[in-house]
Design a binder for these strands. Sequence first.
DNA 1: AGGCTACCTGCACT
DNA 2: AAGTGCAGGTAGC
Length: 434
Amino acid sequence: MAGAFSDWRKLPVSLSELCINTTLRCGQSFRWQNIAESEEWRCVLYGNLLSLKQDSQHLYYRTSSPNLCSSPKLPISGTPSRPPSDTKINGNKDDHLLDILKHYLNLSSNLSDLYAQWSSQDPNFKKKAAQFTGIRILRQDPWEALVSFICSSNNNIARISQMVEKLCIHYGPFIASVDGRPYHDFPTPEALAGKDVEGNLRSLGFGYRAKYIYQTAVMVSQEREKGWLNSLCNPEAPAFGVEAKPGDEMKPEGRAGYRDAHEKLLELQGVGPKVADCVSLMGLGWGESVPVDTHVWQIAQRDYRFGKGSQKTLNKATYDAVGNHFRKLWGQEAGWAHSVLFTADLRSFADRLAATKKVDVAVKDEKDEIEIKTEVTTAIALAPPKAEADIKTEPEEKPTTTGTRGKKRKGSTEGIVHASQTTETRRMSKRLRK
DNA sequence: AGGCTACCTGCACT
DNA sequence: AAGTGCAGGTAGC
């Protein structure tokens, strides 16, 4: 199977700037597949089968070799901004891959600085974020984000992922096959607007979302201008391959472009305020978008004194009030901060909070820069439940990491075992230690 | 305008 | 072993 891929290339990134093990499975993208044996993550991006893994200093990436996936693939039509994936055979395929990665992983901004800023404004964020560093908002394809989050309504992450996988297999272009497993890209709006799509999706287990997806695909592919969805992007964070332009000024309810995108998304079937905000944040690059779902509403009530007095229920007014509050508290990238707290609240990450024994955070000023020292001490593994002897645990990932094994809940073993991997002790930079 | 309720499905939990 | 509740909501009264 290694033969199907190019050699690993690496990019220097610290775990506090990016933690793929958290970012790729915290409910942003539903398409990344974890390969347990090789500790890598796979997904098709812009027609390329991409593979990622990470250690404390580097992000490693590779792609499936083009000469090995010889089957003629159809051109992806209908998505104008999607750049051709297999141009420049002898050109810089590696550079192209790196461009995709930097864009998708949104690597241009300094996450440590953002965490420091959010922490200084909000004690609750500071407390929760210590165990959840390196969470980055991905810049996903807007259409994929739209369909994925239509699927997400009244649903759980595991099934959303299954549904997105089915969309790709049944309606997305085939890209490559590895270990007998086919990898497809995400389907175009045209593909999902075809005949019998609604009925087929229903029989594939999509439930009432089948109609929403079909109707939205028809609207986007037939009742809107080509490139309409991408035109709703934040001009400072445009679709892949499009040049960035300056945006407008921030306001309490968000920038004008964000409000406009939100309003237009609401016209689509199956898209309410929450889904519109998810698409705005993760697909259109509007950092101030704060999706308020059941989790966030609970967080707002529990930690930010919402839900009292007149605003008992989560209606339109309360929804906007929560978003405005977090924008005021966290600033222009409030949606990023929101995502960190959302992840900390996910059940599949619950062991990370339970296992954490002590957290020390020190912030120090050095000229213009702010350095953060974060030290997270994790409890030694709790005794695994009885029938667990044969459950595979990952080999020691790093010599510096204490061998923890997540407290296991009944059932979902895999998520928990993986969750504890990312909790580890980090040291400040040498520079600061002097 | 704001507050219900039905809606598909699979899985954890009783 | 069948039954219940819930999961990153939305549309339509």
